[in-house]
């Protein structure tokens, strides 16, 4: 009924995005960018002021994540998803400028869902509270923007087989709205 363990990689092309349906499980490889509350606030302020962004978000994926600090000899700290709903207010502006994917946990607002559909984007869920598990799927991590924000800096992560579930697909279908069908 649902696709599972389908391997996909960045940048996500239109065909791949269209082929994914809410509830499908995928293993993502490639680059993703962490950004949470404060980074969103700054980026959206820049957009509304008409300032050009210090990062090109076109066709990129944002991961709502603020990792723990990295111990010496390690690639990254614990790095699970944070609650996506807090970014809802600032998400449509980023989709407007070409952001293609988001990774987080939990529900999104109707406004975000419509915006995802309008822009042919996609929202993935990662396993909340499994930051140690997920850290083993990260190959490299490099803070690239807003470093003064500490855990809220934008970090470029390269991931390998990062396990995700499609939360909202490009047609706007929401996995949490079809939850009853999961009770097999």
């Amino acid at each position: 009924m649902f696709i599972s363990n389908k391997k996909i990689s960045t940048p996500l092309d239109e065909e791949t995005i269209k082929s994914l349906k809410a509830g499908d499980e995928v293993l993502l490889s490639g680059e993703i960018f962490t950004a949470r509350d404060q980074a969103h606030k700054r980026l959206v302020e820049m957009i509304s002021k008409g300032v050009s962004l210090p990062i090109d978000l076109k066709n990129k994926i944002i991961y709502y994540c603020g990792p723990t600090r990295t111990a010496p000899g390690r690639v990254v700290g614990s790095c699970g998803p944070t609650t996506s709903a807090r970014m809802d207010r600032l998400t449509p502006q980023l989709l407007q400028i070409g952001l293609k994917g988001m990774i987080g946990k939990g529900r999104r607002s109707d406004v975000v869902r419509h915006s995802i559909r309008k822009h042919g984007a996609i929202y993935f869920l990662a396993t909340g509270g499994a930051g140690a598990f997920l850290s083993r799927r990260v190959i490299s991590a490099k803070p690239i923007l807003f470093k003064e924000l500490g855990p809220e800096a934008v970090v470029r992560l390269v991931v390998k087989d990062f396990p995700l579930i499609v939360g909202i697909d490009s047609t706007g279908r929401d996995v949490f709205e079809m939850r009853t069908s999961f009770t097999e």
Partner: peptide, 15 residues
């Protein structure tokens, strides 16, 4: 996740 956190001495959750 709990096993890995203990083995790698890494936080169970980033928060």
């Amino acid at each position: 996740n709990a096993r890995i956190a203990q083995a790698d001495k890494i936080a169970l959750c980033q928060d």
